[in-house]
Design a protein around this nucleic acid. Sequence first.
DNA 1: CCAATATATTGATCACTGTCAATACATCGT
DNA 2: ACGATGTATTGACAGTGATCAATATATTGG
Lengths: 109, 109
Amino acid sequence: MDNCCTPLFAGVIDEEEATEMAPVLAALGDPVRLRMISMLAAAPEGSVCGCDLEEPLELSQPTVSHHLKVLREAGLIEGERRGRWIHYSVVPERVTEIRDALSPVRALV
Amino acid sequence: MDNCCTPLFAGVIDEEEATEMAPVLAALGDPVRLRMISMLAAAPEGSVCGCDLEEPLELSQPTVSHHLKVLREAGLIEGERRGRWIHYSVVPERVTEIRDALSPVRALV
DNA sequence: CCAATATATTGATCACTGTCAATACATCGT
DNA sequence: ACGATGTATTGACAGTGATCAATATATTGG
C-alpha cells in the first residue's frame, strides 16, 4: 500500500476543460484535415472554395464536405457564401488559442 | 466549368508530413489523455507513476495503461522504470514541436 | 421556371478506438 | 522461492469516424 511518490497535486486541468479542448485537437488529428487547413492558410486570398479541394485531396465531394464540417464545428475554419460557392478560411484566433493551450506544459520544464 | 477563385497554390504541407503530424494531434485529442499530460506536467517532480493515475481519472488500470501507451507512441511522454514503478513525464520538446507546427498558420494573418 | 453547379445530408460499410475483465509479465521484499 | 504489487497484453464489446453513392438543398444564369 506504500505509495511510490507524492500522489498528485493542483494546477491540473479539470474534466470540463479537457472535454472542451479535446475535440478541437481531435479535429486537427486527421491528415486530410491538416492538409485542408494548410491549403486554406496558404491560399493567396486566405480562403478557398470547397470545390477546389476535392481534386488535390483526391476525395469525393461528400467526404470533403464532412471534413469541412468537422473543422467548422471545431471553430477552426469558417465559411462565407459567395453566390454559388462557399469560401472557407482559417480562424486564426482559434488556432492560436489551441496552440497557446499547449504552452503551459512547456513552461514547467 | 468556370472556377470561382484562384485554384490553389504552394506552401501546402504534403501528405507525408500530414500523416506524421496527425497521430500526435490525435493523441492529444482525448480528454483523458489531456488530463494525464497536465497531471504529469503539474507534478512537483515532473513525473508521476502510473499507479497514481487510476484513482483521479476513475479509470481501470488497463485503460490507463492504454492511454499511456498512446501518448508514449506519439512521443509526448516517456516512462522511466524505478524499481517496481514506472514514472511518466512529458517530453517538452515534443509538445513544443507540435505547438510550433501550429504557428505558421498564424503567421499568415 | 428550368437547367446547371456547389454544397449538405442520408444511409451503408468498414476500420478504428475507448473501455473493462482476465491474464500475463516484471520487480521487489521477505 | 514465493507472495505482493505495478505494469502490459489479450479478447470482447460498444461507440465513433472516414468514406462513398445516392439524394436533397441552394444559388445562379438563361
